[in-house]
Amino acid sequence: MAEPILSIRNVTRDFGEFRAVDDVSIDIQTGTITGLIGPNGAGKTTLFNVLTGMLPPTSGTVHLDGQDVTRFRPDALFAMGLGRTFQIPRPFAKMSVLENVMLAPLAQSGERLWGPFFQSGKMRDQEAAIRRRAMEVLDFVTLAPLADNAAGQISGGQMKLLELARILMGDPKLILLDEPAAGVNPTLTKTLIEKIEELNRDGKTFVIIEHDMDFVMQHCDPVIALAEGRKVFEGRAEEAQSNTVLLDAYLGAQVE
């Protein structure tokens, strides 16, 4: 098999006494849509936070494209092509939807203090290109009509699409989505799935945390399950459905 785009080795993350992620090793293959499932509190979001540099692991390593990126900062990882969305959306609330998206491109010359004064020509050209691209991306995620609305005023589902639009501006090769369909109405979910599959066909790799089993079974392969911080299953979606360990983990957590 080809070299994995993301290689997680023995990652552990403690919060004080509590072990939220426990010795997890996963390889994510290029071009896949991996489903990451598990009961509430299993450590899925914590694992994302470690992978994206928001939390340092207590131990273990993460390699992106063969390079050791353990403890890299989130901004550096985004620049290397790793984009993520948040379980609870984090829009820049008092900025317009369009501005939210225009923020994302890297290395904007107008982002330096002197840029607007000494590189104003270059800045204007870049801005025009960024605006055009931002409108395309907003169009792609069906948010173009809301471009001038305050990002804090759109619906929760639309915020999830907005987060996707923002990271697309950075043209990431690996995208981590934390519960993209939670709280999103069925029509919007359908749109979202179409967009994900379209991007996947263009070569982008996805890891998706999702509780909606239909979503996972239909669109994710492989499926990885965490429970109490440990990896308890890795395989094809069909196998997941009949896997007893996995069912126990879910039912156990839900009955408790």
Partner: peptide, 18 residues
């Protein structure tokens, strides 16, 4: 734009490479 994004949500801004 960058200043206001950092005012609104520093974590999100950092996840976007800032």
């Amino acid at each position: 734009r960058l200043l206001r994004a950092i005012r609104e949500d520093e974590t999100a801004a950092q996840s976007l490479g800032k």
